[in-house]
Nucleic acid binder design. Sequence first.
DNA 1: CATGCTGCATTTAATTATTTAATACATAAA
DNA 2: TTTATGTATTAAATAATTAAATGCAGCATG
Lengths: 300, 300
Amino acid sequence: MARSDTRYREAYNRILSFCDTLPVEATIPSETRLAEIAGVSRTIIRRCLSRLQDLGLISWEGRDKRLLRKPQDEDRIALPDAGPGKSDLEQRFLDWILRFDVPANTPLSVAELSRTFEVPQHDLKEFLAGLSRFGLVSRRPQGGWMLLGFTKDYAIELSDFRSLLEANAVSQVAEAPVDHPVWQGLSRLRQDHLALKAAIETDFHEFSKLDERFHQTINSVVRNRFIAEFQKVISLIFHYHYMWDKTEEKIRNEAAIDEHLAIIDALEARDADAARAATQRHLRTSKTTLLSSLRLHDLG
Amino acid sequence: MARSDTRYREAYNRILSFCDTLPVEATIPSETRLAEIAGVSRTIIRRCLSRLQDLGLISWEGRDKRLLRKPQDEDRIALPDAGPGKSDLEQRFLDWILRFDVPANTPLSVAELSRTFEVPQHDLKEFLAGLSRFGLVSRRPQGGWMLLGFTKDYAIELSDFRSLLEANAVSQVAEAPVDHPVWQGLSRLRQDHLALKAAIETDFHEFSKLDERFHQTINSVVRNRFIAEFQKVISLIFHYHYMWDKTEEKIRNEAAIDEHLAIIDALEARDADAARAATQRHLRTSKTTLLSSLRLHDLG
DNA sequence: CATGCTGCATTTAATTATTTAATACATAAA
DNA sequence: TTTATGTATTAAATAATTAAATGCAGCATG
């Protein structure tokens, strides 16, 4: 019943590696220096030094510390295996919601989720608290959490918000200097779109990836932490929804390719108004697709 | 070392009040019914019933429960005093940052904050996790949290984002139907602006409230949960920053009144383009003011 | 026989306790 | 004077613990 000592263990091995770079009999730097090297506090360093002394790796008297012998592989201490970690929890969580088609207003059990995602309950709660800012989840009066989205209203508001951000991005692309990397990206995207259009009969399912790349390229011009944060969620949601909605996928994708090309045309002509108009057309289609995919789920 | 029984205590008093509405000798509803009435689980209801029985308020055998006497005030159980609660934690936290001018890159101690705000550490962590979505705080590698904003970059990006949202709101106002409450609000705002302009020499500090009301009215037209969430933070930050920056306050406010009136004029003329242009002008001024107020803090 | 209530058992959530780690401060050595 | 160490204090992460919620089986009642 306490926090893990992973931090100590990692630091110990790091210090061991550092000692390996020193010759035998060498003086070992001060605790403060070692703390800097390992990126931890002195408290941990002192635990490490105690162990090094116990194992006879160093002598330690007052401020005189000497390396007695070269560290061996067996001197290292084992680390608890890392697991998937909470770094990509967001991806995995949204993936889970969408893949298993978790309906709106489902109670979420932190205990259960922490098992399925193999992260401590604590991290999960923190994550859910973050998501609640996007209105995807909320706390229940009787405790625990509740999945709110994806209702029709949520999808509409998300689409509208996306349109706003994307229109802004397109405007900024149109005003980007000629040496901005976005132009190279768009030129490559044009080729890839044309290539896919030629092979649409067989490769139409490849469009999903291309779509994500397209919107990412456009939005890469916008340097704004708030917008970037939202784009992560938006792109995930749209991306996954498209992946399932298999109705008329080929026709839809073929149309979307043309819509993308129209935007690229307008941008390369530096015609901001035309680009914005083309973007609005494209996003209206997206919105319709998203909504119809929801309707399918409601019926099934 | 466990969760509090506040839920039980509140439920007990609620059940007591319910019993007060019944005549003596009356049959008490089923556990499930009582659970619905009190808004808690059956587990709590059974604890309540046990206590009611112990105190001789009810008889309880199998499913036959009878009220033996009218509940008195002394039958109620004490509640741990509520404290400020975590409902307005956001307001209080932002207020604290801005009022005490907490600089960027300050480590935040959950333990300390939980004391100053009188909320459990747990609630605070949840709150901070939410704020991290706005890029205001982030986790530190060595544990704990760190206040990131308000740097210059943060202010710029926030201003830009605000402009985007506000331009959108203005566009929607211009297209709002004649019977929409926003028109009445704007008409009142016009009068109040004119009144303040007339009394600007003495009442110029009153503008802050008017400013908040103006932007709230404009944004009230937008029905979007994502935008609404951001507006809360944005308005707080701008509002407070203006409150301190006392340099040339009168002149600034006088100018802002004219800018607001220009927007109202354009909107009431249903001239969306002019309204957007006026809004951009106004927000450019806002941005400059926000940035200069930051510069003042850096120097002081 | 169906419906709904209760008793019991299991699971989950909130919160404290505990251990690890970070930090602050005093003291001693260089 | 500067820098390192020793010691004490405080904070953070996490498991343990209790409160509460939920699920299910059996029983009473109409």
